[in-house]
């Protein structure tokens, strides 16, 4: 789990500067969304965001469905005792808790390193936040 959740090394993800935005975009009445959406910085942000959340969603859904299907169709396997009266089913159930917490922790870490700085950069260059 942690292997997949490991974020990119800090150094490899410096915020990509926002290009293609005229000076008027910063001072116009509203931000120029069309320019932002096509900018390199925004494309990079979207890519970083989706590259993490889509595979991770697929992963936890698959792992949950595996567990559900085992519980429904392989109760014998789930009933195998590991130690004392603790069964495989119980351990797998608790592992669902563990994986949920691990994915949450992994995402928060990834977002802090790879997403938040990029968002801050785009907001700053769009004139929403002061530098």
């Amino acid at each position: 789990m942690t292997e997949v959740a490991r974020p990119l090394p800090r150094a490899s993800v410096p915020p990509v500067p926002l290009t293609g935005m005229g000076a008027d975009a910063r001072h116009a009445a509203g931000p120029d969304y069309s320019a932002i959406v096509d900018s390199e910085a925004f494309t990079a942000l979207r890519k970083r965001f989706r590259r993490y959340v889509f595979p991770m969603t697929a992963l936890f859904l698959a792992w949950y469905l595996t567990y559900v299907l085992l519980a429904a169709y392989a109760p014998g396997f789930m009933g195998v005792r590991l130690t004392g009266s603790v069964t495989i089913g119980l351990v797998l159930g608790v592992l669902q808790f563990v994986s949920t917490i691990a994915i949450t922790w992994g995402y928060v870490r990834y977002a802090r390193r790879a997403i938040d700085p990029q968002v801050a950069q785009i907001r700053q260059e769009a004139g929403v936040d002061r530098p």
Binding site: T57, Y64, Y67, A71, T100, T104
Partner: peptide, 21 residues
Amino acid sequence: GYDGFLYSIGFLVAWLVNLLL
């Protein structure tokens, strides 16, 4: 017994959809 626990797991794991998407 165990079947009640299955609810708990669904209710919890569901929060990952909220978190990620």
